Simulated assay, not measured.
Amino acid sequence: MSADSAPQRSNRTTRATERTRRVRRSAALAAGLAATALLVSACGSGGTSGGGGNTNFVTGTDGIATAAKGERTPAPDLSGKTIAGKTLDVADYKGKVVVLNVWGSWCNPCRAEAKYFAKVSKEYAGKGVQFVGINTRDTSTGAALAFEKDWGITYPSLYDPTGKLLLRFKKGTLNPQAIPSTLILDRNGKIAARSLSALSEERLLKMLKPVVDEK
């Protein structure tokens, strides 16, 4: 019996180790899927937003969600390297209205709205408005830089290939849940409005103007 017990114990140990490894792999996969779920592309049809429960925002029939001035939540830390390799912190723009656009060079609706963002960003440059992009799911900055050149985009974009910055937004707030998404931050760095689909110039201005006009 003693001659057989050592191999048996070894086999049991091996099986237990394999089970542990499988559990760990499953946990890691689940975590990866949870992160990816936030970045599900809205390309093609746009996203939908909600405002039920205890949230402090209301979504209009045009898909634009807004929060009243006294019921807004601060944007999370949005800082890092831009696609041009420079350091940027969105918090440095407090005192300005910030238009935050989540985009990818691979995304057809992002290309459709790019010309409007380029145009409006230039028109509002002297009106206390700063545009900032968050480029995501581009595996290198080359394609993103080419995208900006093609569409005449001159404002900076943070480089967020794995969506780490987007995961900093809390659930139940006006968070960017699709690509493209656009947020308007008020002069105090709080989220005033959100769209989860590509914007025309008219809809972009509809989001932006009320926040610019706030006193």
Results as ranks from 00 to 15, higher is better:
G95W: 01
G95S: 09
A91E: 01
N54P: 03
T55H: 04
E148R: 03
G32N: 13
N54V: 11
E123I: 00
Y124L: 12
L145K: 13
K170F: 08
G51F: 09
L145D: 03
S200H: 09
A67N: 07
V132T: 02
T162M: 10
R19F: 04
F147V: 05
I83Q: 00
A16S: 07
G70R: 10
T14D: 12
P156Q: 03
A146H: 05
V40Y: 09
L33K: 04
V99C: 07
L158T: 02
K122W: 00
R25C: 14
F117L: 10
L39V: 13
A34P: 00
M1N: 14
G189S: 10
S197W: 10
S181Y: 04
I184N: 05
F131G: 02
P180G: 03
K81A: 12
S79C: 06
C43Y: 09
S200P: 06
V120E: 01
L185V: 08
R22I: 14
G70Q: 14
T17R: 12
V97R: 09
R25V: 15
T139W: 10
E202W: 10
A67K: 07
T73L: 07
S181I: 04
R25E: 15
P176Y: 02
V40N: 12
L183K: 02
R137L: 11
L199R: 03
A91H: 01
K94F: 04
G126S: 14
R21A: 14
